[in-house]
Nucleic acid binder design. Structure first.
Length: 867
DNA sequence: GAGTTTGAAACT
DNA sequence: CAGTTTCAAACTC
């Protein structure tokens, strides 16, 4: 399907990718696109995505910049229409896919035709698109183009577009999703109906009030949209959507839609529910604007979905509309669960995988690993809510939302592609991303439906972070007052939502878990003089702003899921062990806990320590800093390298030798071991100040290759011991050789590209540098590289040790830029790789950005080096 | 449940 | 920017 249209798709995908980045739905795309890994890869690669995404997010989220969506609902309406049309197409495509994969209902094809008709009928209001919505326009254009061609293209386009649209307007997303759902044919409806019996209805009933409200909003929108008749259609469509979601659970293809829906609807619905019900004691702390807008958004979201349904020519009771949003969640969630459970397995594995990925992305729609603070919020937040949270994020971190979503998507894709890696790896990723998501969703829904529990079960919560975030948030939302008990605290994870016990901070400091997570304290909190309550919203917002003024990222997710993002080279990746490949942005500073207890934020987040960490004696089960892992891998490599080096010493400069060795080692390993060289370096790694200094000194002064080698070796020997330790917790990861791990990351996210990438990037630079470096770079680097930078490059420290050049070699320039771009954390850590791993621009931006950066870097480095 | 430990956040 | 203090969670008993 993809191949013929791939070119188009690619073109469009690039544009879409940008949009997608903005939206959180990249996962949706990916799943859809998954059919053509190449497209997926292209999408992921497109550097534009992240940037636009960030922008879009900014526009939305940024407190400073009121969300465009709100301002110009009308404008959005036309978009919606276009989106709908697109969405319809996309849905058609997806439907077709689903039909092929799972359902195989002929009706789907019919539905597509119907949808196409509808689309043709529906005018594409590209003109309407506002500036902020340019992305949408692009999408629309792409969609329109794509629409004409076979469904496959449309599918990709439609989904991504929708996704992209979402970031700008969550409502739009839902609407598009709804449209897509609406696109489902009657046959699907039938299926959906069956699925309904599954039980989301209960939840839906609970949510009905919300739906009603949303309906109100819908009506408004419907006005925008077009005909009142369409409204009915919407309602019907809503029902259909819900049904579809359910059905999707059964069908793989449907899964995509479901996921999308779930993705959109779930968060939104949750947000809506939360707001409306006001159940959640720990409500997300609204930004001043957000509060009002959120409600609107939530309602809009629902309404949009309904509106989308308008397009769908189906019968349905209004009541169904009410359920619609609710059902979505439930259904979706259920679907997700079912999917996870493997109900769909019977269909097509690929589909299931994709669906799973989608599921993940959808259900999650939030950065998996992310989040102690914002993460939680984000997780809990529905898209609409996300916008609200996003506001904060935007304040500190532009595009965080979008970026997060991207990460999620990537994660989802990763998880979705378990086949690639070990089942374990797959599971792991799922655990984090999905768990968190699932947990969140589950938390929100558990009360409503048992299905949730299933999904949850699927993802045994491993991550404490998740625990904190999701449970608290979810519970809070679901059971604001009741759920909380006193200090269940994070440890309770599963037990309950997070609560605080603040005595003096009044819950208005980051000390407070609730405040730090961006949620209001609930009844369960045992805090004294709590100022983090809805009553004090103004104050809370003000305080937040103050804190953000000091540290824009204060509320940003501390954990960045970036397995793929992490530069392939990074030691972290190798070390990484972090199940989700997530990392703590700032890193921990543990001294005594050795990162083995929850004192350590990294450990608490189930994330391995990264180069950014300044911990002492890191024994983080999720991944030791870099040293250990690197040491392990490096040790073997080093030996080889050392031997080679020795031989080379006579001939070449020691430096060159080292470099060449690296390149040699790396090249053969290529994608596998781009890390290895680093690892070698890493061996010296952290402890490294010693090793570094010594090595650097050696290199500079005597430049004895052996000295460096000796360091590496010694370090290896020393560090080797700890790595074994890591294996215990992370059996999965640990089991895999470091290079495998790295591969994993790359493979997951980017089917093929990542590999190339990594392999080339780390290696080529060094190699090239080596070649050239001897004369120029070497001198420059050595002399110029300030100690800070050297230190900064800690992860690669080994590089330093081996050769000053190496520091820069891997990505010298880029590093600097990155470092600069990367927040203070990067500088602090001072480690090259950290910089890479951390998205330069918005540290929040998870995978996508980082990927992009990496891609850029790689390309740039390769080009530079090559030249 | 009380007390201690720990490290992040806040402050100077 | 570094060092110190404050704070609340995490942990231990």
């Amino acid at each position: 399907m993809d191949s013929p249209e791939a070119s188009k798709i690619n073109n469009i995908s690039s544009s879409l990718s940008t949009i997608n980045a903005a939206t959180n739905n990249p996962s949706d795309e990916s799943p859809q696109v998954q059919e053509s890994p190449f497209l997926r890869f292209v999408n992921t690669l497109s550097p534009i995505k992240p940037v636009k995404a960030s922008h879009a997010t900014h526009g939305f989220l940024g407190l400073n910049s009121p969300p465009l969506v709100f301002k110009s609902p009308r404008i959005s309406a036309p978009h919606r229409e276009t989106q709908y049309s697109e969405r319809l197409e996309g849905t058609h495509l997806s439907d077709t896919e689903t039909s092929q994969s799972n359902i195989g209902d002929n009706s789907l094809g019919e539905a597509h035709s119907d949808l196409k008709k509808l689309n043709s009928q529906l005018p594409l209001p590209e003109v309407f698109i506002p500036v902020a919505q340019k992305d949408f326009d692009l999408k629309n254009d792409a969609n329109t183009q794509s629409s004409s061609p076979p469904a496959s293209v449309d599918e990709y386009l439609a989904d991504p577009v929708d996704d992209q649209m979402y970031p700008v307007n969550p409502e739009m997303e839902q609407s598009t999703d709804a449209v897509g759902s609406s696109s489902l044919t009657e046959s699907e409806k039938v299926i959906l109906k069956f699925d309904r019996s599954d039980g989301p209805s209960n939840i839906a009933e609970e949510l009905l009030p919300l739906l009603e409200e949303s309906n109100m909003v819908h009506q408004e929108r419907t006005e925008y949209v077009e005909n009142p008749a369409t409204i009915e259609g919407e309602k019907n469509g809503a029902e259909l959507v819900s049904q579809e979601h359910i059905n999707l659970g059964s069908s793989s293809g449907a899964d995509v839609f479901d996921k999308q829906y779930c993705h959109d609807s779930l968060p939104q619905c949750t947000g809506n529910d939360q707001r409306h019900h006001s159940d959640c004691a720990p409500q997300l702390m609204p930004d001043p604007i957000q509060v009002v807008k959120e409600v609107e958004n939530c309602s809009e979201m629902v309404s949009t979905s309904q509106v989308n349904s308008e397009n769908i020519p189906q019968d349905g009771s209004e009541a169904s509309l009410k359920y619609h949003g609710i059902r979505r969640r439930c259904l979706q969630f259920g679907e997700a669960a079912s999917v996870v459970l493997g109900s769909n397995k019977s269909h097509v594995k690929l589909n299931t995988t994709s669906s799973n990925a989608k599921m993940v992305s959808v259900t999650v729609s939030k950065p998996p690993g992310i989040g102690l603070h914002l993460n939680s919020i984000i997780n809990a937040m529905p898209p609409s809510c996300a916008s609200t949270t996003g506001v904060r994020l935007s304040d500190g971190l532009p595009g965080s939302k979008s970026s997060i979503s991207l990460h999620i998507v990537e994660n989802a894709t990763r998880s979705s592609t378990p086949s690639n890696m070990d089942g374990q790896s797959f599971i792991d990723t799922r655990n984090e991303s999905n768990e968190t998501d699932a947990s969140v969703v589950a938390d929100s829904f558990i009360s409503e439906s048992p299905i949730l529990t299933e999904s949850i079960d699927l993802y045994p919560a491993n991550a404490p972070d998740k625990r904190r975030v999701s449970p608290t948030d979810a519970e809070e939302f679901n059971h604001p007052s009741t759920s909380r008990k006193k200090k269940k605290t994070s440890t309770d994870d599963a037990s309950g939502p997070k609560t605080c016990n603040c005595k003096k901070s009044k819950c208005l400091k980051l000390y407070c878990d609730c405040f730090g997570a961006g949620i209001f304290c609930g009844d369960g909190c045992a805090c004294e003089g709590c100022g983090n309550r809805v009553e004090f919203q103004d104050k809370v917002v003000e305080t937040k702003q103050q804190i953000e003024s000091r540290n824009p990222q204060a509320f940003a997710p501390k954990i960045v899921p970036c397995a793929a993002d992490v530069p392939p080279n990074n030691m972290e990746d190798v070390n990484m062990t972090t199940p989700a490949s997530a990392r703590h942005k700032r890193g921990c500073n543990c001294k005594r806990s050795k990162c083995t207890k929850k004192y350590c934020e990294c450990f608490q987040a189930n994330v391995g320590c990264s180069t950014g960490c300044r911990c002492d004696g890191c024994m983080n089960a999720f991944g030791k800093r870099e040293d250990f892992v690197a040491m392990e891998h490096a040790s073997s490599n080093e030996r080889e390298s050392s031997i080679v080096e020795e031989g080379l010493d006579d001939k070449l400069h020691k430096r060159q030798k080292i470099v060449t060795i690296r390149t040699d080692l790396l090249r053969p390993a290529n994608h596998l071991s781009p890390v290895t060289p680093l690892l070698q370096c890493s061996d010296q790694g952290k402890q490294g100040a010693k090793s570094r200094h010594s090595s650097t000194n050696l290199t500079k002064s005597s430049k004895k290759p052996r000295s460096s080698l000796a360091h590496s070796e010694s370090n290896d020997s020393q560090k080797n011991a700890p790595p074994t330790h890591s294996s215990s917790t992370e059996n999965e990861w640990i089991d895999l050789p470091p290079y495998q791990l790295s591969n994993r990351c790359g493979i997951r996210q980017l089917s093929g590209g990542s590999l190339r990438w990594r392999g080339s990037s780390p290696i080529t630079p060094s190699a090239d540098l080596d070649d050239e470096s001897d004369g120029k770079l070497f001198d420059i680097l050595e002399d110029e590289t300030p100690d800070v930078l050297k230190e900064a490059s800690t992860p690669i420290k080994s590089v330093k040790a081996n050769s000053p050049i190496r520091k820069r070699v891997s990505p010298p320039q880029s590093h600097l830029l990155r470092i600069g771009s990367s927040s203070s954390g990067g500088l602090k850590s001072g480690r090259k790789f950290i910089l890479q791993s951390v998205p330069s621009f918005p540290p929040l931006t998870p995978c996508a950005d980082s990927k992009v950066l990496n891609d850029n870097e790689d390309s740039g480095n390769s080009t530079d080096k090559v030249t």
